[in-house]
């Protein structure tokens, strides 16, 4: 049996090699996607960098996911960092992002008109309906649900990672769930 300090060291080296491999394989693709929106190579590489850092933070979970989920994670992370950069630009240009401003200023939640359909028996059809609803949802909300319920990130971690206020994250989660309820009304079996 290897000494424990050696095992720890090996694990670390393996992790470094693992993350570097992802970066080498996916870095260009992430950069291309970010640069297509941001049109600034320096900032786009910064976004790639930020994405890799989040990957490291959730490395153990990432290793356990299948390929499609891993790609979803990287892509969703990157898109949220791109949004963060866009928000910065809008703020610099003297404009506020209406959604953020609205949520933070009013603290209002969307009215949940479908509280009466809160529980259902599990069925693959119901799961598929929810999956489709999330998939068709605006990324701003769909991604929040992904990070919260699939990655198991806490609201404050989502906020810290993507440069949002905790109030905004709470609001988006609440709003996404309300949208889901509204979307699913009458569709669930």
């Amino acid at each position: 049996m290897l000494p424990i300090y050696l095992v720890e060291r090996l694990e670390t080296e393996e992790d470094v090699a693992y993350v570097e491999k992802i970066y080498v394989e996916q870095g260009s693709k992430l950069f291309a996607a970010a640069n297509k929106i941001l049109h600034d190579e320096s900032i786009a590489w910064g976004v790639v960098h930020d994405t890799v850092i989040v990957l490291i933070d959730y490395l153990e979970e990432y290793k356990a996911w299948d390929d499609a989920h891993q790609k979803n994670f990287l892509y969703k992370c990157e898109k949220n960092f791109v949004l963060k950069e866009l928000r910065k630009r809008k703020c610099r240009n003297g404009r506020t992002v209406s959604l953020e401003g609205y949520e933070e200023a009013t603290g209002r939640e969307l009215a949940d008109e479908t509280q009466d359909i809160d529980e259902w028996f599990y069925s693959e059809e119901n799961a598929a309906a929810i999956r489709n609803a999330i998939s068709n949802m605006n990324n701003t909300y769909g991604d929040i649900l992904f990070f919260k319920y699939f990655v198991n990130m806490r609201n404050k971690d989502i906020a810290a990672t993507f440069g949002l206020s905790v109030a905004s994250v709470n609001m988006r989660v609440s709003r996404a769930m309300a949208m889901l309820r509204k979307e699913l009304k009458g569709k669930l079996l």
């Binding site: 259902w120 599990y122 799961a127 999956r131 999330i134 319920y149």
Partner: peptide, 12 residues
């Protein structure tokens, strides 16, 4: 029965 949060977890 499952609530919406549980369904979202399963769906994702």
């Amino acid at each position: 029965k499952l609530n919406l949060e549980q369904f979202v977890r399963i769906a994702l």
